[in-house]
Amino acid sequence: MKLAQALGADALADKDPLPPHLREQLLARHPLFVASHWALAGAAVVGIIVALAAVRPWGARFPRRLLLTVSWTLGIFMIARAVGVAGSGLVGDALLLTGVREAPAEHAALVLTLARWDLLLWSPFFLLWGVCWAVTGWRLGRPVQGRT
């Protein structure tokens, strides 16, 4: 999706849970956001290589510690993002949508709409992705017969 956005598509860009001023820059294709989309697309390619290296025979060429570190780091960060350590995520969105935490009055409708999208799409996606990375890290850390 970030590659599509870097190339000019608006795929779900209007549903990105960003503060209003950053959201406007994202939708206006501010150069910093375009550059960040390219960087994230590149990071996704690296992630694909690491994921494949963890399960394919040619991955034995990579240092095991590097694969373990990348897998666990990505898993922890993605699970933390999904749960809501930084304020959004499952916990933050649930607090907003149940009224326990108030949305800013000047952007209440937008914040609640984005919280719904985050609760139903982004947070579960990051949780699933993070769990997959953590399981990969866990499996990489287990001793395998024939591996020294």
Score class of each variant (00 low, 15 high):
residue 103 A to G: 09
residue 81 R to N: 05
residue 124 P to A: 12
residue 135 V to C: 05
residue 108 A to K: 13
residue 94 A to K: 02
residue 77 F to W: 07
residue 103 A to P: 05
residue 60 A to G: 05
residue 83 V to A: 14
residue 61 R to C: 02
residue 91 V to I: 06
residue 118 D to S: 03
residue 72 W to V: 04
residue 74 L to Y: 15
residue 67 L to I: 09
residue 86 A to C: 03
residue 138 W to C: 12
residue 82 A to Y: 02
residue 79 I to L: 08
residue 126 F to T: 11
residue 138 W to F: 15
residue 127 L to R: 02
residue 117 W to H: 15
residue 80 A to C: 05
residue 113 T to Y: 00
residue 92 G to F: 08
residue 128 L to V: 07
residue 107 H to D: 14
residue 106 E to I: 04
residue 69 T to V: 12
residue 131 V to W: 15
residue 78 M to C: 09
residue 130 G to Y: 06
residue 75 G to Y: 11
residue 104 P to E: 14
residue 140 L to N: 10
residue 140 L to H: 09
residue 76 I to E: 13
residue 112 L to N: 07
residue 82 A to D: 08
residue 90 L to W: 12
residue 124 P to I: 14
residue 99 G to A: 06
residue 134 A to C: 11
residue 99 G to T: 06
residue 77 F to T: 00
residue 127 L to N: 13
residue 76 I to M: 15
residue 95 L to D: 05
residue 105 A to H: 08
residue 64 R to P: 00
residue 102 E to T: 09
residue 97 L to V: 01
residue 79 I to D: 06
residue 134 A to N: 09
residue 67 L to T: 09
residue 92 G to R: 06
residue 65 R to K: 05
residue 142 R to A: 13
residue 68 L to I: 01
residue 77 F to R: 03
residue 109 A to M: 02
residue 83 V to F: 08
residue 134 A to Y: 13
residue 63 P to T: 09
residue 133 W to H: 12
residue 89 G to H: 07
residue 133 W to D: 11
residue 130 G to Q: 08
residue 137 G to M: 09
residue 96 L to Q: 05
